[in-house]
Every structure is written in C-alpha cells, then in structure tokens.
Design a binder for these strands. Structure first.
Length: 485
DNA sequence: TTTTGAGTTGTTCGA
DNA sequence: GTCGAACAACTCAAA
C-alpha cells in the first residue's frame, strides 16, 4: 500500500462498477482523490451540446454523492486539464494519476499533453482499460493491420477473451481536499459552457434520460429483463417508443461499462445476438477512428473528399428544422431537437436524406447531430454518418439510398411516429401519412391540411434526387478508378 | 503471391 | 402481393 494518495481522474467513466482504473488506484494507494475537470474546450467547443452538458452535470452530481458515501468525495475543478491535474497532484501530494483510456482524437491529444506535464513533474500517469470490450491494439488482422470491414472485425473480436467484470468498491479513503462545486446547468451564465451556433431552442429536458450510474444500471436491468428479447423485431420500429435500449448516453459517459453490458447481454435468442452486434459496431467505429483520427474531417475513402456537396442554406435549414415535406424525415428531425436523441433507424433515414437527396456534406449533418445528441459520440457519429453518406467503411455503398416514403411505411406503418412529432399531419389518413402530397382533393379538404401552408411541399422530388445522387456518386467512383489505373 | 469468397441496415423490376 | 435477381464492380481479409 503506497503511502501517498492517487488521483483518479474521471472523464467518460462516471461509474463505480467495473472500473479498472479506480480499482487499481484503490488497491495500491492508501487514499484516493477522485477528480473531474470541467474542460471549457470540450464543453464550449464546436461539438458542445446542451443536452450532453446537462446529462454530464447530473451524472457528476450523482457520482459525487456516491463517492462521498464511500468515503472519498469527488473533487471538481474548471480549466485546462494540463494545468489542473498537475495542480491537484501538487496540492494533494499525489505521485500517481489513474485514468480510463480515452480513444477519441481530442481525448488522446489531451492525455498526451497532460501526461507530458505530469512526467516532467515526476508524477506517473497510469492509463487503464477504456470503455471498450477490446482495446484497439487487440483486434488486428493476420497481417497485424486494423480492420476496415465490419464482418471480419466482428469475427476477430468474438474470438478474443473478455476481461472479468470488476465489482464496485465497498469503501474508499479520501483526502481533505476542497471538493469544489459542480455548476448548475446555465449555459447563458457560463460563457465557457455556452454552446455555439445552432443551440437547440426546442430541447425538452424532461425527455432526456435520468442522469447517473444508478439510473443507467436501472435502464440496463430493465432492458435485459425483458425487452432485449424482442430487439431483433422492434429495433427498427419508430412507432414503438421502447424498441431500442436507449443506453447510448450511458455508454458514452461510461455510466455503464461496455464490458459489463456485453457480459450480461450475451445469451440465447435473436434479440440478444442482434443487440450485442450493435455493441460490436460501437467498438468497430471506435477502433476505426483510433487508427484513422483524420476521419474527423475527411472521408474514409479519399476519393469521396472530392465530391461536390451542396451548401444551399435553404435546403440545410429545412432539414435542420424538420420542414422538408417528407413526414418521416421531419418527424425524426423534430424528435432530435426536442429529445436530444433518435433511434438508429431514424438517424439513418435523416442522414441518407441529407447526403443523398439534398447532396449536403455529411460533415454538416454530423456537426448538427453532435450539437443536439445527448449521446453524441465522435466515433459512432462519424462512423454512422460516413456509412450513410457512402464515404465510409461500407464496402457496398452503391445501394444506400433510402426512399423516405418506403422507409416511413415500413418502420412506422400506422403513422404513429409521424403524428407524434409532426402534429399538423395528425388528421391525415394512414394511407397518405407518409406522402401527403398524394392526397386527392376530396380527402385533403376534410383533413383540413393545406399543403404548402400548414405543412411544407417537398423540397426535392425523391425519384429525381435519387437519379442525381447515383450520377454524382457514380462519377466519383469512375474518377477514383481512373486515378488508380 | 495469387486466388477466392464475401460484404448491416435498400430499391426496383419483372415473373 | 411475393419473390429473386439486378444494381456495378471494388476492396478487404484469409486461405
């Protein structure tokens, strides 16, 4: 037992269960300093999100209370971690800092800076397992390269042995360091935390998931208890409010350990198999971004960086505000603004619509998502957007143009989802709910809907847009082929 | 080194 | 209404 305290610097691992860094520090040191640093560069940066900040602060409040009960109160500071972490070490006498690895580009760069400062001060930096079942170095092809196709990645991932789940500590010993203050969520009063342009005025905080580890564990238990069994059948159904697990924010902030979620989710049945598969997708995109941090700003396949995207502010504005004239797209965009969350099927529908029907750069869509999503995660978001835009890892991108009417009819057969989020369409009969422009006048009149007044006309014709997208993407493919031959 | 099999999530067309 | 094939050819990963 080392007679100096250890700093456990929490970041996206706001939990006590299955926490290798916390456990290692508690085993080796007689006292610990749990630390969280509110980093204005993250909370006010280009991808800052009020929904995420709110969820983060709530989760911190709960972590703080739980740690205090165990005996080691959470220390909260505001500032650049490269300044704050060494300062907390100095004031507590700590010679060791334990963290869960952060695999995303910003976190990695930050940790390199912080580790350099600590090393210069003679303090040891201990990165422990991050919130992935397998670390990026562990999954490699026979030629020791990283995977860029999902299916072989999954087969390799499944062959690896998982680490054991670690129980939460029963007690901790802290220090008498000033715990500091967790600020209330007041974006206007806190310039450092204020989101930049595109702040969502429509966010309804009551729709956000309850923050904190206990709530997250409750969600996981409820999900695994019953609903996961139906996941294969319900995950694409937009009209069912609980067809998916809604654990994405919990995984993003590490309220849940991915390792524990997989351990508990494995089992018989299609639902469990498909659910674990989604968790492997999360791992895949984290690994891909780890090996290719340039994906933050560039297409996975360089040829697609030469696509000529539209920057028409009218089209982009209609998409953002849910006024495209395509009910399923508009319902999803309004749910995103209000709830800070979308089921994956809805994300794919609006992403393919923006990139294929409107030919708008996936980076515009990704930035919008990151500002609104409570679960906004660089790796998953970037992977999802590039997949939808056909610039990513998908080996067969040629097919990915969704028909918004067909998607609506298939995944929201009764129009329940559309009516919930686009109330001006509430009176439209089911038959036309996904294509109100096809309503004959004798139906439109009694429904009371005046197209172009109460609800917008379509901003593009999908059949035409589809042909245009095929031509644009096809020309890039031929262009790429010519360059390599 | 060369060959071979395979590739999340779709849509349309024609039988 | 349902079903299979075509879409168009490329790249990855493993044998």
């Amino acid at each position: 037992m080392t007679p100096t305290p250890a700093v456990v610097w929490f970041r996206r691992d706001l939990r006590l269960h299955d926490h290798p860094a916390l456990t290692a520090a508690a085993v080796r040191h007689d006292r610990i300093v749990p630390l969280f640093v509110l980093d204005p560069r993250l909370l006010g940066g280009r991808f800052a999100s009020p929904a995420r900040t709110r969820f983060l602060l709530g989760s911190l409040r709960e972590l703080s209370a739980t740690l205090a009960e165990l005996g080691a109160p959470l220390v909260v500071r505001v500032g650049d971690p490269a300044e704050v972490v060494p300062a907390v070490c100095a004031s507590s006498g700590a010679r060791d800092v334990y963290v869960s690895r952060d695999h995303a580009p910003y976190g990695r760069d930050r940790d390199v800076r912080v580790a350099a400062r600590l090393t210069a001060a003679g303090i040891e930096f201990h990165p422990k397992r991050g919130n992935l079942v397998h670390e990026p170095e562990a999954v490699a092809t026979q030629e020791s390269r990283s995977y860029s196709v999902y299916s072989p990645f999954r087969r390799a991932w499944e062959r690896l042995e998982r680490r054991l789940v670690i129980p939460a500590p029963e007690s901790l010993v802290g220090t008498d360091l000033d715990p500091g203050v967790i600020p209330a969520f007041t974006p206007d009063a806190e310039p450092g935390f204020a989101p930049e342009v595109g702040a969502p005025p429509d966010l309804d905080p009551t729709l956000l998931p309850a923050p904190g580890e206990a709530a997250a564990r409750g969600r996981l238990a409820a999900w695994l208890d019953r609903r996961v069994e139906d996941y294969a059948a319900t995950r694409d159904r937009l009209d069912l409010a609980d067809g998916t697990s809604r654990l994405s924010a919990d995984l993003h902030f590490g309220l849940l350990s991915a390792n524990e979620v997989v351990e508990r989710a494995l089992g018989p049945g299609d639902g469990r198999r498909v659910f674990v598969n989604e968790l492997v997708w999360r791992e895949f995109y984290a690994h891909v971004l780890f090996h290719r941090p340039d994906l933050r700003d560039h297409a996975f396949r360089p040829a697609f960086d030469r696509l000529e995207w539209s920057d028409d502010p009218v089209l982009i504005g209609a998409w953002r505000t849910g006024r495209t004239g395509y009910p399923i797209v508009d319902a999803a965009m309004r749910q995103l603004a209000a709830a800070g969350w979308l089921p994956n099927r809805a994300r794919m529908i609006v992403a393919t619509f923006l990139t294929k029907d409107l030919l708008v750069d996936w980076r515009v869509g990704e930035a919008h998502f990151m500002r609104l999503l409570v679960d906004g995660d660089m790796a998953s978001d970037n992977g999802g957007w590039q997949w939808s835009a056909s610039t990513g890892t998908d080996p067969q991108p040629y097919f990915r143009i969704f028909d918004p009417v067909a998607q609506g009819r298939r995944h929201d057969p009764d129009g329940t989802y559309v009516r919930r989020w686009v109330p001006e369409l509430a009176t439209v009969p089911v038959r036309w709910i996904h294509a109100p422009w096809e309503m004959p006048p004798d139906v439109a009149a009694p429904s009371g809907l005046r197209l172009g007044i109460d609800y917008p006309e379509r901003i593009v014709d999908h059949a035409e847009a589809r042909r245009r997208a095929l031509a644009v993407f096809g020309s890039v493919r031929q262009d790429a082929a010519r360059r390599t031959s």
